[in-house]
């Protein structure tokens, strides 16, 4: 039985109760520093980015070219067969216009994250990146976009070697 109006356990506090120390509490900042290895596929992908290239991997059994690249095909569970250099253009699969940061602070200039299907990869295979040099209101699904790269001297083998994608 759970009727409306029944009194349940659970005591709601306000931020004020912490600020004024009306309730006892402790805090702790866990020391969580990680170094994530890039591994085989990602290491190669990042080297490609440094050279201004987008690389995918191809599975000949499933006839699939995927990006981000991986060493195994999750459909047939075999090793991928070869590297494929893809174009640095693609189409917008979906996008958002985001006005807040992860800790809910307002952004003055909204960000436009998008999934971009990369030309040369199989249909629907895309990556997450940002769009810029575009009025957010003008962004459409299916819009053609191209990577805007950092100057070669500033590239460091990072997804950020592509500054953003812009419409073409």
């Amino acid at each position: 039985m759970l009727e409306t109006g029944i009194r349940l356990h659970g005591t709601a506090l306000e931020e004020e109760d912490f600020k004024t120390h009306r309730v006892f509490y402790t805090t702790d900042i866990p020391k969580l520093q990680y170094a994530w290895d890039c591994g085989v596929a990602m290491g190669h992908y990042l080297k490609g980015l440094k050279q201004g290239k987008l690389l995918g991997t191809y599975c000949k059994k499933c006839k699939r070219t995927v990006i981000p690249p991986r060493v195994f095909c999750e459909l047939c569970f075999r090793n991928m067969d070869k590297w494929v250099e893809l174009k640095d253009t693609g189409i917008v699969n979906t996008f958002s216009i985001c006005y807040v940061t992860w800790d809910m602070k307002k952004l003055i200039y909204p960000e436009i994250p998008a999934v971009i299907e990369i030309d040369g990869a199989s249909k629907g295979k895309g990556i997450l990146h940002l769009l810029a040099e575009v009025d957010p209101k003008q962004v459409k699904l299916g819009m053609k976009v191209k990577a805007v790269w950092k100057p070669k001297s500033e590239r460091e083998g990072s997804i950020l070697d592509i500054k953003y994608f812009k419409p073409i």
């Binding site: 990680y34 290895d37 290491g43 990042l46």
Partner: peptide, 9 residues
């Protein structure tokens, strides 16, 4: 000698 990305939570 290997690539690693550093980050935190």
């Amino acid at each position: 000698g290997k690539l690693a990305w550093k980050g935190d939570i």
